Simulated scan of single mutants.
Amino acid sequence: MSLIIGIDPGSRLTGYGIIERDGSKLRFVDAGTIRTETTEMPERLKRIFGGIDRIVKFHGPTEAAVEQVFMAQNPDSALKLGQARGAAIAALTNLDLQVAEYTARQIKQSVVGYGAADKEQVQMMVMKLLNLSIKPQADAADALAAAICHAHASGSMSKMALLNALGGMARGRSRSSSRRR
């Protein structure tokens, strides 16, 4: 069983979502947004860092996933988004969490099955996958989607590692039995 935090970075609103993975089952734990509510960028970054620090210390996730920055049409917006993302990653790594990074396309593909899905589709699939009765706010839904994407990706990697280990054991047995002949 693992607890996964997903982060959807933003300079004004940073979404977070926490899920629990138990085998192939996913369960909603918490979600919301960190609102910076200031115009000064250093203060926004401080609030993002502090908010994530408090959330991680409270819930104790063991894994983290952060959405990667995409190049927006406005370079200034992309720079601010990158700074917010950096504050989020710094907060997570400061608490010794390894951070997996996924593109928006990877996250949408994992959750909706379509890499160009819109926010409404992501929200609806997050509700369905986590059996939620209320639609989460868009940034929180995106963060939950990042956590779900990581659960799927890391679950697949765990299965592959197990299959590789079992395959290696089977190859080892077949080699040793062929030597006895």
Rank of each mutant, 00 (worst) to 15 (best):
D76P: 00
K80V: 03
P42V: 04
L163H: 03
I55W: 09
I107N: 00
T62L: 06
Q106L: 04
R35P: 02
E120H: 11
I52Q: 02
S176I: 13
R44V: 01
D22V: 10
R85C: 08
R35W: 02
L163R: 10
Q137A: 15
R105I: 05
G51F: 00
S154L: 08
G32Y: 06
T103K: 03
V69D: 05
A84E: 00
N74Q: 13
M41G: 02
Q123Y: 01
R85Q: 15
Y114W: 13
I18M: 08
S24H: 08
A153W: 11
V66F: 07
A145T: 09
P75I: 06
L13R: 15
A138E: 08
A138W: 00
L130W: 08
E20M: 15
G51E: 01
L95G: 09
K119Q: 11
N94T: 12
L144Y: 07
K108F: 07
G86C: 11
C149T: 09
N74A: 13
F58S: 13
I89M: 15
A91I: 00
R179N: 08
L92E: 05
G155V: 11
L26V: 07
Q106E: 15
G155H: 05
G115R: 12
E43Q: 10
K25A: 14
M125R: 03
A165R: 14
G155A: 11
L129T: 11
K46V: 06
V111T: 06
T33M: 12
S177V: 12
E120P: 03
G17I: 05
G6F: 03
L97K: 04
S133D: 12
T38Q: 10
M1L: 11
D142I: 04
A72E: 12
G17N: 06
A143M: 10
I52L: 15
Q109E: 14
R171W: 05
Y102N: 03
A65L: 03
G113E: 08
V126E: 00
V111A: 03
L45H: 00
